[in-house]
Nucleic acid binder design. Structure first.
Lengths: 232, 232, 232, 232
DNA sequence: TATGAATGAGGTTTCATTCAT
DNA sequence: TATGAATGAAACCTCATTCAT
């Protein structure tokens, strides 16, 4: 009896391991450049085994994206529950973004991977539906407190709840992404090699970018954006 | 020598044609999915001929990115030259972003392609240096009026010029990208097919996203961000 | 010991189930395209279990072919036993063919599967010998009454017993196979789809083929062939 | 100018070489077991090159089958043209079958390959249509003189032209196939090895089958079948 | 006996790149 | 300069088979 459960658990763990490895590889090389071989080696499994757990490569990334989005949504909900008022909830959501980024740093990028779901011919319908559901849930979570704030007269009616939510989210995401890209370029082995061989120089600008206090910038940004939607 | 020059000119024209085609293909299918065959067909040349003009596929994309960045920088400069004061210049830069997006719409995404310069082992040093130079020039152009505005006391000294420039740029880029993604998902043939077959439903949220007035949102956003950095 | 016997019996039953499923799958997809997975699912057993009962995939098909051949031989014997004279026996054998085809329809094709015994490296010797024995028994059964008819002077001595038997058998098999192929092409989902999409048209010829009265043709054929070997 | 043509011709020759090799391999191992690697090695080309000349494996076999059918139809037409009367034409068609078999022996089997066109998902429409057209032309050629013979009162009206043609063709094909199978089993290396190792014995029956005078049998058969359809 | 899990070996196909002409 | 032809290398995926339990 317990044996059944243990097996079930082990299987889930395997799946999780594969997904963790896949995430790592996808982030390092991009979805298209990542190979099943890469993932297999990283998971210490054979390529064939991957296909026992996932139908194909596309389903792996969709599962990964789903998991990331799910984790973020959870964080947002947890964070929000700490506040009573809608405005406070909104501020806390921004905090949640940042926590998420700190904790799951790398995974973050996947959410904005440009390949998204376009051209995903071979995913099973079920898998795709799961993702769409999670996607919608994420936006609902994001819009909910904005809606309340609108009804309460905290926000001006000039913009709709969706407009406010989209602006907040895109804005913060944009800044985080930028930060991520700078860090990545700097960490990219090819780039480091070129610098080491004096073929390319770090210039002052890049050095300055790396030194920025992003947390401070993010907080300033979110405060400003929220404020800009408030009633005067 | 006239003959020499004509040949030179023709060569440049060929190169431009190839790059134009490459840009089109890269945008439509992403860098990794685009094939040399695609570019050759679009240019009405043979695959082998592409290698006469470019060392390899990676150099093509680097040239394309360079050209796009160059175009954007030009637009910013032109736009800025219409104003005298630094604050006005900054506002106009935002306008330049939007014009650029309107004119070159899809090209926009290329600038933030995650595949960008990571893993570009095979580009020639010269080519890579050109790109880095253009990249630095872009940021310089962006920071210049911010610096002036800072010195003039228009902006508070709480944030550095780079911080302000990065925030402005990342923010607007984030919102534009979001818009782009929504449009692209909606236009993706696979997605349309799934909707047509009733496997996935447009939900209210997505419909609302499509209907948003992004220009208005962008203007509101840039105004707010600029204002947030001003002296009180 | 009763327990021993029951186990033995159960084992045989399992084997029979697997073979029945295998037959179904082989006929539907061809031997090479059929997978152990297919057979396992159809038998409601795990893939691994199949290997408890059969050494490998090749042995399964050899067993199946054996069983089919055995069944046909039985039918021929039963049919023949209803007559006294050799000529009557021969006529009845033809009837047996047709009954077999009616009853086991699709199984028929298996007997002439070109993949048959070529390249069967991995079957156990015993298994292969069984098949050869059954094959010889089949031909003996077929030749026996022909031999008698020859000795009785019913058939002309111009042809040997084997020649007569081979002609009869090949001839009837040829016609049956043709019939089978027409029906199968018509039933093939891909083909139907192409017709539905107007990519290929049924033409008058194919329509006519489907409408033929094969039983009548078969009877005419066997009568004519038998008659052609008779003494004038 | 001549250069253009020469290239064209060389290309056709390459295609022909590939098809010849493919035919050889398909016959030796069956369509499914044959690999592109096999064909490449046999053609002394790389695997990739095969894809320059044919869209995929399925199109190769369809082209091969088409060519074989085309060759047979030609032979039938040439043969028929030597006679004036319909009955003579029909006899000559049978001769053509036999010539074809003698000359193109191996290719023959492909025509009755059980895999035929079922499950051919990936062939281009054009390629498939070519095959269907050839297939129809073959039957037309076969039925034409039968029709004339029917109208002339040479054949009894009890059977239609199609019925007569189908019977003739299936019957002769059946006998030829049988002959082929016996020869092949005998020539199969695995089988020879088993015999050499005394694991299986040639028995009298198989020996006798090999020794049969098939040409004589075929002629007897076709004469008998034709006669059976004649007016009494 | 029965099986869940794992995999080695191998199949088809794609594509950036080269090279003789 | 321009290209048709050819290919090496690698990617995704499948499946018969094994093995510990």
């Amino acid at each position: 009896m317990g044996i059944q459960e243990r097996k079930e658990r082990e299987k889930e763990q395997r799946k999780a391991v594969i997904m963790a490895c896949a995430t790592k590889i996808f982030l390092a090389k991009g979805f298209v450049n990542a190979t099943m071989e890469d993932i297999a080696v990283c998971s210490e499994l054979s390529k064939a085994t991957l296909y026992v757990y996932f139908k194909n490569k596309e389903e792996i990334i969709l599962h990964v994206m789903n998991a990331v989005l799910c984790r973020l949504t959870e964080l947002m909900e947890t964070s929000m529950s700490r506040a009573k008022s809608a405005p406070d909830k909104i501020s806390l959501i921004v905090e949640a973004y940042m926590d998420f980024y700190s904790d799951f740093n790398a995974q973050y990028e996947l959410l904005s991977s440009q390949e998204s779901t376009a051209g995903m011919d071979f995913v099973s319908l079920e898998c795709y539906k799961d993702y769409v559901a999670q996607y919608n849930k994420f936006w609902d979570t994001l819009c909910a407190p904005v809606n309340v704030a609108l009804e309460d007269g905290y926000f001006s009616k000039e913009f709709s709840a969706v407009e406010i939510a989209v602006t907040l989210w895109s804005t913060i995401k944009g800044l985080m992404q930028n930060m991520d890209k700078v860090v990545k370029t700097q960490n990219c082995p090819d780039y480091q090699k070129m610098v080491a061989e004096n073929k390319v120089n770090y210039n002052d600008f890049q050095t300055e970018l790396l030194a920025l206090d992003y947390k401070k910038m993010l907080r300033h940004l979110s405060d400003s954006v929220i404020k800009s939607f408030q009633q005067q």
